[in-house]
Amino acid sequence: MKKKTTKDIVIINIILLIPLIIYGIFKNGYLLYERNLIPFYIIFKPLYLTIISILIKFFFDFITTKKINVNYNLLYMILISMIMPYNINILVYIITLIITYLLTSLLETKFKFNKVALIYLIIILINSIFNGLTFQNPLESTASFNFSFLDLLMGRCIGGISSTSIIFSLLAYTLLINSYYYKKDMPLFINISYLFLSFIFYLITHNSDILLNSELIFASIFIAPLPKYSPYKVKGQVIEGILIGIISFIISILFNKVISIYISIFLVSLLANLSLKKNN
């Protein structure tokens, strides 16, 4: 077994995210271009968002430390760019990301919370003022599709710009599961508790909309178990996982399926920190 540095772990995670970004370009770029819904240069919008995030991160690195660091902040920025809605305005994205990145970095010194989830929620809030709260791309908003289960697994669900591919998310999970650095129990319990509740909900109401939630799968695999914001003991991971699953389910029913997971991840990480502080 080879020792891994922080840089190695971050790079492995980024490599595992690449197929999802490529699928994002296919779903939210190529398919739209093919139907003449967008000009050619917009095909690569998912990639532009990722590059912008990386550049902002490196810019801050350069200002603060005069060198470029490959650390978890880089992964956070890439993840944020992947979960953005298709309708995000690039200018709004750049400005809000810079402000929220600075703000959360300051807040982080006082409170421990999932930074990725909070930045996402703030950007979504601001974007919804200008563009409304929608996660559909032009194709999804203009037509109605009857996708097969396999299509949905591949990523034809409604969600973030590069985060909808369930297959690639699960593939990444199976590769991460053997790593000593990955908190594998958390995604498992988030999904088990969410699926359990939504299945009961389906049995009662026959509403299958919330059963398959690609955003929940993506966020539970990549965002909830981020080491800094999640417990390292299995017991803690199980408790937090179940809590996130339950809260996500409730928010999915009452408010919005896509952002439910981010609200619950943020709330649980904040609550966990507050309860830890109280106990100490």
């Binding site: 922080t6 772990i9 650390n71 978890y72 000593y180 650095y181 908190k183 080491p227 800094k228 914001y229 999640s230 417990p231 390292y232 003991k233």
Partner: peptide
């Protein structure tokens, strides 16, 4: 030495 990541690998191993 860098900041602890809270990854829990030390506890696991």
């Amino acid at each position: 030495e860098t900041e602890c990541l809270n990854c829990g690998a030390c506890f696991k191993i």
